[in-house]
Design a protein around this nucleic acid. Structure first.
Length: 724
DNA sequence: AGCACGCCGACT
DNA sequence: GTCGGCGTGCTC
């Protein structure tokens, strides 16, 4: 008996499509994949529902070409989660499924797990085994379930011939088994925890098996990772899976390695450095319950689990949890929603929690867990503000800072200098005619990169050769202004010529292993100066750094984005936390052209918590998020004004309905032109979430039918975190 | 989004 | 005479 199958497709349409199937109803389940004809194309879709009749007349329905999955594919929980995401973010359902699936599975790969050869002991050898053979046998003794050939190869190198010999003698046997991640063969002893850590662990474990949200607010270096690990240990022992989300930063290996060295568990990692094949395997291992711990970036929030027990969001304040194009979801919020429906606890961890999260703590929706002491008895560094003067200083470095660097290097310590701009200098000018190197596709200046002898636009990626003379008037003296990592690197090399200066930014770490090699060199502990962007600020544990210098921190104080101050407070607190993490005590020097700005006094005297409290009060007073709810319509188009016109029409549509929602704009984006496109936005503000979503739902279809909507790109951003 | 269909300018 | 430009409309 045939049936009607409702299918979500990977196209930007806010609807599903019905198809006829020859298969009987009972062969179908929501969540399965199917190949279907769509227009003149062939697509893969996800089954949303199976039904006896369609609202579309039967003669218009096409037949399903192929049923890809014969058994359930996406669990009901993920189906509901993705559908919730589609409704909440007002994004086409098919594209939401795209975001939730690993590429290979999206493209129709079989959902069978990769297998590999596992070896296990069979009987005592008769002949005396060779040296390598003996090593293998010794190790296998500890693993009665067997070890994968891959794991043995990682440990002993080429093992093929040894294994063949041992197998011929029936000492060991081979068996095909689902490929699990290579286990860590040498577990470290557990570290001793302080009382705050122990209490935090207990409080989370007390909520096992029910929804409960926690903020683990631990100062930098207070041992949050150890708390996560000990909580995980308990869940793993109970055969429950843990999903750990981490920010998208270059190096997550440090974090992952600590888990691997501490827990005898199957730990899979899903981040950008993992191949498509491994991603698929990790996803399948999680779905089957064979992965105990899943560590991944933003999109891993959609990973299915057979026995979910807990979710952890590390560095919950990090902006990379919010996707800034396509489906603009916030992984932290999706995780909270998921934890609620799964009825499991969720832990958000940070040294610098977002105001959103602190607001929830204030409303008593999250339990607060605090770690106020640095682990291992390390002390927080002493922080000082230096008045910097642009014109008088040596390439942006004040003499106070240089003298201090000298002092720390003499003690054979390491120094970290933070400057949040890569390249040599952000401005190139002609003295004669006032010409300036601007990007032709963006409202932005080109940045001088001296190493490559080029000009770069950091917004669209435009590359030009560095001009030798002014393209306007031909004058040969072009001057650059401002500082970037390259200039600081150059200045320091000139001053401290016998000390290695390591520049760590996107340019210097592009080559494979460049970053890992630099980290290795740093960890050897000799005196060195590290110059870097926020790549350096996030999460690294450099034990020999005793001085942190912040070269140019002020820009954010004058930003038009009301969130900039929050971001600056977080960044400074995080950078500050890089000093004195080992046994040596640390010092931090912050150069500012605005040392009198109340922000600094507030942050340095009272700390992050206090400044966050003040900022939150301000936001509540001014009815800014997290108090009240926002949504932004964004549009961009190749032609000037088109985006504004489109949003003007959207505003007119929205205003046709009487609603408590405030409509503001449209206005051009702060940087109106970017990558050759003109951008604009339209803001919606509301005191309650429901009216905001209702108003969007009422008009989104009419908006997508607007003529101008086809000419430019448009999107809607729920709970925006950036006003661009 | 893709893709087809359709109706107007500079080319083998 | 055609190739191809992108405006418009549709996709169960």
């Amino acid at each position: 008996m045939s049936c009607i199958v409702e299918i979500a497709l990977a196209c930007p349409l806010r609807q599903t499509f019905d198809y006829l199937s020859d298969e009987p109803v009972e062969h179908w389940q929501p969540g399965m994949r199917a190949v279907i004809p769509f227009g003149s194309r062939q697509l893969i879709g996800i089954v949303i529902a199976i039904k006896p009749v369609s609202e579309i007349s039967t003669d218009k329905l096409k037949k399903i070409e192929q049923q890809i999955d014969k058994q359930s594919f996406l669990p009901v929980e993920i189906m509901q989660l993705v559908q919730w995401v589609s409704r909440y973010y007002h994004h086409p359902i098919g594209e939401c499924f795209q975001a939730a699936l690993p590429k290979k599975l999206r493209l129709g790969d079989s959902d069978e797990m990769q297998t590999e050869t596992y070896w296990a002991l069979q009987q005592i050898p008769v002949n005396k085994p060779g040296k390598k053979q003996q090593q293998i046998l010794d190790l296998l003794e500890d693993y009665p379930e067997g070890l994968s050939e891959k794991a043995l190869r990682v440990q002993f190198g080429n093992v093929k011939s040894s294994l063949t010999t041992l197998a011929q003698q029936n000492v060991i046997t081979a068996r095909e088994h689902v490929a699990l991640p290579v286990p860590c063969l040498e577990l470290q002893q557990t570290v001793s925890l302080n009382n705050e850590q122990k209490q935090s662990i207990e409080k989370v474990l007390a909520e096992k098996g029910q929804f409960s949200s926690f903020l683990l607010h631990g100062i930098t270096g207070s041992g949050k990772t150890e708390v996560y690990i000990e909580i995980c240990r308990e869940f793993v022992e109970n055969q429950q899976q843990v999903l750990v989300l981490i920010p998208e930063i270059g190096l997550t290996t440090q974090f992952v390695e600590r888990f691997r060295h501490s827990l005898a568990a199957n730990i899979v990692v899903i981040n950008s450095s993992v191949s498509d094949a491994d991603r698929k395997q990790a996803w399948l291992l999680a779905r089957s319950g064979k992965a105990d711990i899943i560590i991944g970036t933003r999109s891993a929030v959609f990973t299915p689990m057979l026995n979910p027990g807990l979710m952890i969001i590390d560095e919950e304040h990090d902006s990379s949890y919010k996707q800034q194009d396509g489906l603009r979801y916030h992984a932290r919020n999706v995780a909270l929603m998921r934890a609620k429906t799964l009825n499991i606890p969720i832990v958000l961890g940070s040294a610098t929690p977002s105001l959103e999260t602190l607001y929830q703590v204030k409303l008593k929706r999250y339990q607060l867990l605090k770690l106020t002491k640095r682990a291992g008895g390390a002390t927080l560094p002493n922080v000082k503000l230096i008045a910097a003067n642009k014109t008088a200083d040596n390439n942006g470095l004040s003499s106070v800072l240089i003298n201090s660097i000298k002092k720390h290097l003499q003690q054979n310590h390491q120094v970290l200098l933070f400057i949040n701009r890569r390249g040599f200098a952000p401005v190139l000018m002609c003295h004669e005619c006032n010409w300036q190197a601007n990007c032709r596709s963006c409202d932005a200046k080109m940045v001088v990169h001296q190493h490559q002898n080029r000009l770069f636009c950091h917004h669209c990626g435009l590359i030009q050769t560095l001009p030798k003379k002014c393209p306007e008037c031909g004058h040969s003296e072009l001057k650059s202004y401002g500082v970037g990592t390259e200039k600081i690197e150059q200045a320091l090399t000139a001053i401290f010529n016998d000390i290695p200066v390591l520049r760590i930014d996107r340019d210097s770490t592009q080559r494979v292993n460049a970053f890992t090699n630099m980290v290795k060199q740093i960890n050897q502990g000799q005196a060195a100066i590290l110059v870097g962007t926020q790549m350096l600020a996030k999460g690294h544990d450099f034990h020999d750094v005793t001085l942190v210098g912040v070269v140019d921190a002020d820009q954010a104080l004058f930003s038009a984005d009301f969130r900039a101050t929050e971001g600056l407070a977080q960044l400074i607190t995080q950078v500050t936390g890089r000093a004195g993490r080992g046994k040596k005590s640390g010092e931090v020097l912050i150069q500012s052209e605005q040392p009198e700005h109340p922000f600094w006094k507030n942050l340095l005297q009272d700390g992050y918590e206090a400044i966050a409290e003040n900022l939150l009060k301000e936001r509540i007073q001014m009815e800014l998020p997290p108090h009240g709810f926002w949504a932004v319509w964004r549009a961009e188009a190749q032609e000037a004004d088109l985006a504004m016109q489109l949003l003007q029409q959207v505003a007119e549509l929205l205003q046709q309905t009487a609603s408590p929602v405030m409509i503001l704009g449209p206005v051009p984006a702060l940087m109106e032109k970017r990558a050759g496109r003109y951008r604009a936005q339209l803001l919606m503000r509301s005191a309650d979430r429901a009216s905001l979503h209702q108003l969007i739902d009422q008009h989104i279809e009419a908006v997508s039918k607007l003529k101008l909507a086809r000419k430019g790109r448009w999107s809607i951003d729920i709970d925006p975190t950036e006003l661009i």
